[in-house]
Design a protein around this nucleic acid. Structure first.
Lengths: 203, 203
DNA sequence: AGCTTTTTATGCGAGTTGGCACAAAACAAA
DNA sequence: TTTGTTTTGTGCCAACTCGCATAAAAAGCT
């Protein structure tokens, strides 16, 4: 009844790979090809380990996807939350979009890991569907909690804050898709800035 | 040098399937599983024909995807364009979103065929990437051309109409993703209505 | 009826995919 | 040194994937 990551008894042969590093390599692979677009062989190769080791350490394809998505979500959440912690609402929102756009167009594969890979599998894979649903929900929640700190600055009734948050979330979804289609940082930033202008005043 | 759809000479054994019907069945299958999520065997089964017939009539996997996407885009464009032709801008936009939401949550698989299946393949499949890019572009263009008919009604500078169109497009993208995650018609309609309210006045 | 054309339907073969078994290796504890 | 534990690496097997070859069927034309 072991899960495969920590040791219960004493010795054992040491691993030749770092778990987070290997997961990062697999995440990048799945991010590029989608989950159905790569085989376990391909995932194992991209992480530099063989299939039995892969299975023992991370489980089957679904478990690998779940772990890669969790690592991605944690990274994303950390960066966006830090950006949103800026004092000025406009600055905070701009910084949040900038952080996301950097990830969507930076060193890694274009677009958002979840938004670009989970939808294709969502109808046939409950795990992917659940990850998609939770990710969309958490994006809305992050924007909403930040907006609630500055109700006055929002050009809408207070009871419409959830709607405004969802529209900011929608903009982020769209940015992720457009990045996947090849849009440049500049065009994406311009779109995000426009959305923010619509939400708060021209301040 | 035949393409496989019309006859050049005389006779020939007649087809046992209707091309548009078969394409519709394959479209539905790919819509549900994604392109990499189904094999040529699976596509052929879903359309009720065998692989050699499939290949002769529609070509390889990429060609099948392109044709299924084209049929989907034509259907979508027809319905949305009709909705957007309503006189009142607000009614036109609401009708357009209603039409899309009906497709995204109606009889077929949840979500948008293109937005939910093309992104996963876009980085490894130029055809999918091109289809994604063109689809996003044409959504923006449809909203923009409609907005330009009622510049006065839009609560933004005329030179910002492309931005507003892109934000309506972003809302549609988000609606497609949220539908894939299981959102109900009502929640989606409410989100769309909120976006429209932000764009034009409360009229 | 005979010929041509086009589609249908079956099946083969090389390569891929994923689960699993097994022996060897590397380490800790006794 | 011996024992126990965990990982590594190779390899097997059944199923799937896909292109292709081939024969039969179903039509039109002469």
């Amino acid at each position: 009844m072991r899960v495969g990551t920590k040791q219960t008894k004493h010795g054992g042969r040491p691993r030749k790979f770092d778990e987070a590093t290997a997961l990062g390599a697999m995440q990048r692979q799945i991010w590029t090809t989608g989950l159905s677009g790569v085989s376990l062989d391909g995932i194992a190769r991209s992480a530099g380990l063989n299939r039995p080791s892969l299975a023992a350490a991370f489980g089957d394809k679904d478990a690998i996807y779940a772990k890669a998505a969790a690592q991605y979500a944690a990274m994303m959440d950390a960066r966006v939350s830090e950006a949103l912690s800026l004092d000025d609402l406009g600055s905070a929102l701009r910084a949040a979009f900038d952080a996301a756009i950097d990830i969507y167009t930076g060193g890694g594969p274009d677009g958002c890991f979840v938004i670009c890979t989970a939808p294709a599998e969502a109808l046939t894979n409950p795990i992917c569907r659940s990850i998609l649903d939770q990710s969309l929900e958490s994006i809305d929640a992050a924007f909403l909690s930040r907006l609630q700190l500055d109700e006055r600055r929002v050009s809408a009734n207070p009871d419409e804050l959830p709607l405004v948050a969802a529209l900011l979330g929608a903009t982020l979804h769209s940015v992720a898709l457009r990045a996947r289609a090849g849009w440049s940082r500049e065009r994406l930033r311009s779109l995000a800035a426009g959305a923010i202008r619509q939400v708060i005043g021209e301040t």
